[in-house]
Simulated assay, not measured.
Amino acid sequence: MAYWLMKSEPDEVSIDDLARAPRQTLAWTGVRNYQARNFMRDDFGVGDGVLFYHSSCPQPGVAGLAEVASRALPDETQFEPDSPYFDAAAKRDVPRWVGVDVRLVRKTRLLSLTEMRAAPALATMRVLQRGNRLSITPVSRSEWDAVLSLLAGSATPP
């Protein structure tokens, strides 16, 4: 099992949108960065843990826990001319972009970026590194455990 942090702007897709979705599952579409795409295509496994992170908002942070619910499949938005994620170079027989389904495990309190930065156990977490703009980043088991501990209110994450 692997662990991931997946960023979403809450005005586009929030943890509440995921909670209201049929079967509490949504297609994760619109990723247009090759490294993030490669994570989904090559490294994601069904059942992998996901930190659902609200970004580009007044209070960024982890808003819930989810899991990868499907293998990577072509992202249909790349073929839709009216979509902001349309890619004219993408072809159905050679798609450029993939997506996965993500299923809610549970909504959590917001674990703010400030709280995350203050936690020594998260010092090397990629989302906290300067210049990191990736929408999907790997999370180590120790970082995953530290986030869960912080969400549970433990004073000292492992």
Rank of each mutant, 00 (worst) to 15 (best):
D42K: 14
S14N: 08
A19M: 11
V31R: 06
V127Q: 06
V13S: 10
N132M: 14
P81C: 08
A2G: 07
A123M: 09
D11K: 14
Q24D: 02
L51V: 07
V147M: 12
F79R: 00
L150H: 09
L18G: 06
D93P: 00
D82E: 08
A118H: 07
V98P: 00
W144V: 06
R106Y: 00
L151K: 12
M125F: 15
P158M: 09
L113N: 09
R71A: 15
A21Y: 01
S8R: 10
V147S: 04
Y85R: 10
I15H: 05
W4S: 01
R106K: 13
V94N: 15
G64T: 08
D43L: 14
A118T: 05
A119I: 02
A146D: 09
Q35R: 14
K7R: 12
R32N: 03
D11L: 11
Q78G: 06
S8D: 00
R141E: 15
K91D: 08
E76I: 12
W144D: 04
S135N: 03
F39D: 01
S8Q: 04
D87A: 04
D43N: 13
D48I: 03
L51C: 12
A123K: 15
R71C: 09
A152Q: 13
M6Y: 03
F52T: 05
D82V: 00
G61A: 03
M40Y: 02
G64F: 07
A155C: 09
D48C: 04
S70I: 03
Q129D: 07
P95T: 12
D43H: 14
L111F: 10
R117L: 14
D11R: 14
E143R: 12
P74H: 05
A19I: 03
A2V: 03
D42V: 10
W4D: 01
M40L: 14
H54D: 03
Q129A: 13
Q78C: 06
E67F: 02
A21Q: 06
F44N: 04
L148D: 07
A146G: 12
S135K: 01
R71H: 14
D16F: 10
L134N: 05
R32P: 01
T108E: 08
A21I: 01
Q78P: 05
L51K: 06
D42W: 03
F39G: 00
D75L: 04
R92Y: 00
R96P: 00
S135W: 02
L110P: 01
P58S: 09
L151F: 11
A155D: 15
R133A: 10
V31S: 07
A121V: 06
K91N: 01
V13R: 15
K7S: 06
G49T: 01
R109P: 05
